[in-house]
Design a protein around this nucleic acid. Structure first.
Lengths: 337, 337
DNA sequence: CTGAAAGCGCTTACAG
DNA sequence: CTGAAAGCGCTTACAG
């Protein structure tokens, strides 16, 4: 690495103090009443030496790094990748930079990530919290670190969050299928102690109950670490037990995609043999023949809102903002015709 | 933000100098021969106050941030998302943190990203370079900033890079289709002045020529900003002109996915009506019925190699490493049976 | 209008 | 074995 030029280099070249150079570089020459001639000389020298400010030094002095930490479950997952992209754009527009990390839904990785990024003095966090991390989040709140939870949150903690109305997502999807005439509707969801999953399950459950289909309730709980195995078993069971009017709702994108794979493997036809309702879009849903129905999350809003809420917190607001976004149902020829 | 505890706080509490505290926090108590009693007291105080080092201060002093900058075209694109994830893991294992940015294939965004990250004193860069950024890359080289190019590179610049053997990728895919009996083989590629695309085109071209199919050469050049329109047109033409033995190779994942969409729209059957060869895996390729053939990139290697090459550079090596990775052909029932 | 100086939180030669 | 001090590159009250 070549030595970078500092304020001092400019000051020496022009023959003034570092303070003056700092003022003009930061555009404060008016407030600080720097002489016009001096301003000009400093500008020229800065240009000539191609001065670039050292943000690390600035951060140390200002106690603000203009950096945020983004902790998602897995940046390679398109849902989080998209979210990251939207947050990146918002951040960049506001002069912020983002450091990211993937927790892999692992509480220890989450903890290590939070520590690492805290030590790097990020101004705040956007976090997709993982099972077992409620203590870590409480700790952040206690330290008054600005943060917003996204996608999921902890009802026990009074903190800012931006999430989908998960209850409505599966409630609406279930009702949609019921209206299309399906009766044997199953929900494939993760066995997970996180609010977003609980809510998705509750939405399905209540939609079935309110429509007098309580006895047809069929909740398939999938262990995240064995999802392929568990989905496979569930399929065997569904095919063996339910003989008609079958419909399957999936509570996450990964489950949807693997479910689709199983449907193909079993040579079941959608919607003739079984109806399908996925979660989150995805290229496969469009390419499928016929195109598939799914719950669509307002990703753009989710990303923008979460950054903006965080920015307020960083700027000193102590107002807690909790946003619940509406899902959209993308309904396509699922109808059992 | 609560005030963080500093070395000084510990020093005051224990009643020793900051230097001693620094030594024991950094595990240098042996080399610096700190008294056993003092070590113990400092350890306890650090624990009690829950001391966390300020990496910004450390970075300023050490002139190393243990941070790398990752510039990809778009983190929301699964190819880059996966790559980012692999790099994140490697980096994290070595105590590095990653700041990312998406260039959107835009040279101005690329420049601004490089500047921003440079000012934040990243120790080095991993860059997926974009058309028109050769000057920016030259500039980095001139400043002796450690960097490695990935996915693409500039043959005019002697710098480290890790890329796919793009020539072989399309060469092999083309030969595969020829061996399967196809004659009217087209390649859909971007009209782009970047080596990876040029090489993919050359691979296709030479495979056709060496197999005496030069007259059947049909290169469809797609404008990146109008890819949907252009692919649509290409399809109309292919369907109108070629009557049999049709096969289509796509030079990127996005092109493959949209091409698939068009094939569906036109109700063409794979492989009966047209054979398909995609680029990069993707869930849709597995879900398709029948599963589709594609060129697979060794993403894991690409990510790991690029980080390791960068790490060497950061650690002072001036050796330029250029790695070309082999593609794998995932061949499935494309055969025209 | 301008400069000398303190200080952000560290690390590290140097002196004793 | 331990401490005082310089310095990384900035910003910013303060004095003149």
């Amino acid at each position: 690495m070549q030595k970078r030029v500092s304020l001092k280099d400019i000051a020496n070249k022009v023959g003034v103090s570092i303070a003056l150079v700092s003022y003009v570089i930061n555009g404060q020459e008016k407030e600080k009443r720097v002489g016009a001639e001096v301003v000009k000389k400093i500008r020229e020298a800065a240009e000539e030496l191609n001065y670039q400010p050292n943000q690390i030094a600035r951060s140390l002095r200002m106690k603000s790094t203009k950096t945020i930490g983004l902790i998602v479950a897995d940046i390679a997952n398109p849902f989080f990748g998209h979210l990251a992209r939207i947050i990146e754009n918002e951040a960049s527009n506001q002069g912020y930079t983002v450091i990211f990390g993937s927790s892999d839904e692992d509480q220890f990785k989450s903890e290590s990530l939070i520590n690492t990024l805290s030590n790097r003095q990020v101004d705040g966090f956007i976090i997709v919290p993982t099972e077992g991390t409620i203590g870590q989040i409480r700790e952040l709140a206690k330290k008054k670190t600005p943060f917003v939870l996204v996608d999921r949150y902890f009802p026990e903690i009074n903190a800012s969050h931006v999430v989908l109305d998960n209850y409505r997502a599966t409630y609406d999807a279930t009702v949609q299928l019921i209206n299309e005439g399906y009766r044997n509707i199953s929900l494939c969801a993760y066995e997970l102690d996180l609010i977003h999953m609980k809510e998705r399950i509750r939405g399905y459950r209540e939609a079935m109950q309110y429509n007098n289909l309580a006895e047809n309730l069929h909740l398939v709980e999938i262990r995240p670490e064995h999802y392929k195995e568990d989905i496979g078993k569930a399929f065997d069971e569904i095919v063996a037990v339910q003989k008609e009017s079958r419909a399957l709702i999936f509570a996450t994108n990964a489950l949807s995609v693997y479910g689709l794979y199983c449907i193909q493997k079993k040579s079941l036809k959608i919607p003739k043999d079984i109806a399908f309702f996925g979660f989150d879009g995805g290229e496969s849903f469009d390419l499928f023949d016929p195109p598939l129905s799914f719950v669509q999350q307002p990703l753009e809003e989710m990303g923008k809102e979460s950054f903006n809420v965080l920015l307020n917190l960083i700027n000193g607001s102590s107002k807690i903002t909790q946003v619940m976004l509406s899902p959209a149902l993308i309904v396509r020829n699922t109808v059992n015709t």
